[in-house]
Design a protein around this nucleic acid. Structure first.
Lengths: 249, 249
DNA sequence: AACGTCGGTGTAAATAATGAACCAACAAGG
DNA sequence: CCTTGTTGGTTCATTATTTACACCGACGTT
């Protein structure tokens, strides 16, 4: 299933040989995997160039999940309001396997804004969303993140266990997370956890701003919009904000 | 991946033992599969009752596919207009593996209307959408459908190769498909193919009406709305309607 | 014409998946 | 209060599976 992770916003179709190279798996094996996944509708082959792309079955499953729990429907209006109020790009993400899945993005109207790929997988240690989630996640999840080897994505990405742990305790104390160009240069992120029914984080709500625009009042304004939006989102998803959670700037 | 097919509109969470029973696979194997899929975000475990449900990673992939080719965005307004014009339930589906994946449904406002499960997998031989698709699909796909053993879903479902072949040639001649309670009792379906860039069918656009409401003028009215809607949808998806395609009532 | 790449196919070797038995924990029932 | 039947999860020896190498024809470039 990791084959699917090679499809991104930009590269929507991949040929057999390319996919084998990218994944490091033998061509024959990749082909069989793709054919199996095609049976289930996860991928489909472009009949023109014989390249592979994500299949319509994914849309079906997504509708199924959305019918069971309408996260997109709940989050989209909240994101729109958040982007409008802050004038910055707002996005929401949920835990998906070993990182956060970007579920929704809304950009503001201004010209200088942060672009976030739709459907991006956000690493838990290098993004504001990831920190906000991890700091309030179930302890075993927190520990699993701390136990990984942390990849350096930019120069300021935390790579040692200690620096990450420090960031997490700081995040837990403040109630929100900051990521100063730890994932992408020039991008400054503020994030707040989204809570599940068990009172632990299940995702995050975040605002990304160009680093050049960061200032104390701006930051304060973003958090003022982010906090109630996250509370509303948590409620809308059927979650419960734990009593001790406070946002302290 | 067939494990995922046991999740439906109604049953959104399944326990390990249930899933093992349903699939006929050993518990241990199912557990391992689920854990692997959880790593990729396809499923996730409800921490409260330890049951499994579709994961957030599916939403991510769906967003990715939607970014590559915005089918939902294109089809939804068309479906809404279609449902409004006909006063009946309209739905669209695309080929996904061995059957059609229901991609969008819009219901009319009237009380007596057909309900179609979101995210349903439509069998190719037993639904109007399936017939419309298969009749205009690439020859090899058509033959694959004819080669299957056809399951009887209602009393009128075509089960022999010959009866299905007859239905397909009739569909090909008329340009649209009719399914008179072949999938669900009391439901009458009319469908038109959606075409891909290669001029072969890639899906179908359909209107479902209670069998009690069927009449020649009603049917004529539905087709009058369906035909231009399908043409618009095909264009919107980047497809090409073959020159020979005509709808002849 | 030579070369590289493409998607795809067989087959023998080697790995990985499999499932019966077992466990603790919980619930309903007598 | 014990029985009986669930549940989710684990173990480990057996086994069948996947794997990857080599090869193929087709297409495009050089």
């Amino acid at each position: 299933m990791k084959l699917l992770d090679f499809f991104t916003d930009k590269v929507t179709e991949i040929g057999l040989s390319d996919l084998a190279r990218l994944s490091g798996i033998d061509k024959a094996t990749v082909l069989r995997m793709l054919q199996d996944m095609a049976e289930s509708g996860f991928v489909e082959q472009n009949p023109e160039n014989r390249r592979w792309r994500l299949g319509a079955g994914i849309l079906r499953l997504a509708r199924l999940r959305e019918a069971a729990q309408p996260v997109t429907r709940v989050l989209t209006p909240i994101l729109e309001r958040l982007a409008g109020d802050t004038g910055e790009t707002a996005h929401a993400s949920l835990l998906s396997g070993r990182d956060l899945a970007n579920i929704g993005v809304v950009e503001p109207t201004r010209a200088n804004r942060v672009y976030i790929e739709p459907g991006l997988a956000l690493p838990l240690h290098a993004t504001a969303s990831g920190l906000a989630f991890t700091a309030f996640a179930r302890p075993e999840q927190r520990d699993r993140v701390l136990g990984r080897k942390l990849s350096a994505i930019t120069g300021t990405t935390p790579v040692t266990r200690d620096s990450l742990a420090a960031m997490l305790t700081r995040t837990a104390a403040r109630g929100f997370a900051v990521a100063d160009q730890t994932y992408e240069d020039e991008v400054y992120g503020l994030a707040v956890p989204l809570f599940g029914p068990d009172g632990f984080a299940c995702g995050a709500l975040a605002v990304a701003t160009p680093a050049s625009r960061v200032s104390e009042p701006h930051e304060r304004g973003i958090l003022a919009a982010l906090a109630p939006a996250a509370a509303e989102a948590t409620r809308g998803l059927g979650g419960r904000v734990p009593a001790h959670h406070r946002i302290i700037y």
